[in-house]
Amino acid sequence: MRFPWQRKADPPPPGPEGMVLRPLPREDQWLNRFHLDARRRVRAGAQGGHLTRRRGQSLRFREFTPYLAGDDIRAVDWRQSARFGPDHDLLVRRFEAEEPLTLIVTLDARPSMWLPQPLPKMQIALWLTEALARLTCKQGDTFVLHQLATGKVYPVKTRRAADTLVERCRLAPGETAPVNLGQLERTMPPAAVWLVVSDFYSEAPQCHAALADLWRRAARKHVWRTLIDVNAWPMERALLGQGARHILGPGQRLEQPFFQVDNGVLAQVEQRIQTAKHAVQQPLQLKPQDARTWFWPEQSELDADAALAFFRAQFQQDPLLKRLFMR
């Protein structure tokens, strides 16, 4: 039996005011090991790759191109030009342009990301952002945090700044708030890496369209676009159980959301979730290796240590993240 005045002691609706997101522990030996492990690997078929370019001199050959007026005469490969004969233009050696890595993480902070209460998606997203920021700063690259709804962009270049990312995580104004991608597009350099972290529950068509538009324009700038789908449905399914339920949550339109939950209902809801996610992701034309889904454990309760262990396991086993930090 719970009295109305006891509600104040219960967790309030999700959001920064009511929920304290825990920062990633400073102890990051496991993160160092992950980095070392990733660095040991070499990208196969580096053609077109633009992930690990560094500042300074590059010795990596890219292609031969016909000489154009204005090219440095020292770049002409005289031997290859002679092989093709005088009927052809001189061939000029082209090398990989070395640019600093810019890792952009777009964080979806809509209310649905602040659930479920045992392990909010936003908590995992924060830890992921912090871990990526630390690794990026460790390599001397640039990390940029972008909030999907507010559109604000926070560049992070130092470890100290990476440790304060938790303060940047703010609740989005609403479940149907429009996405703001203008500042991100202006900030996004060519050949950057763009990682979108969301549960893709939003059903606002204008949001889908805006994201798909930027997604296509980023492709033209050779931006490597990836996404991580945080899927907490297994945990919420365990949380629901079966029986008479009064189901509350963001984006709900029913005034009397009372349901008799059984396996059939759960299957229908799961199908609707997949349909909603597909509606968002399909216009992005993702390659399978550029999209990952993190499934929550099928438990109704999870303590803090177990939540952190779950995150570490997901992070360390994720091949997409390893690819980010390969040489």
Binding site: P13, P111, S112, M113, W114, L115, P116, Q117, K121, E175, D199, Y201, E203, A232, W233, E236, L239, L240, G243, A244, R245, H246, I247, L248, G249, P250, G251, Q252, R253, L254, Q256, P257, F258, F259, Q260, V265, Q268, V269, R272, I273, A276
Partner: peptide, 23 residues
């Protein structure tokens, strides 16, 4: 019936499942 309250992020996907008489 005594309805147990559950707060979940996927609540919106229950919207189209109208409560039945049996509920």
């Amino acid at each position: 019936p005594r309805y147990e309250v559950r707060r979940i992020s996927a609540a919106r996907f229950f919207d189209d499942l109208a409560p039945t008489d049996s509920a």
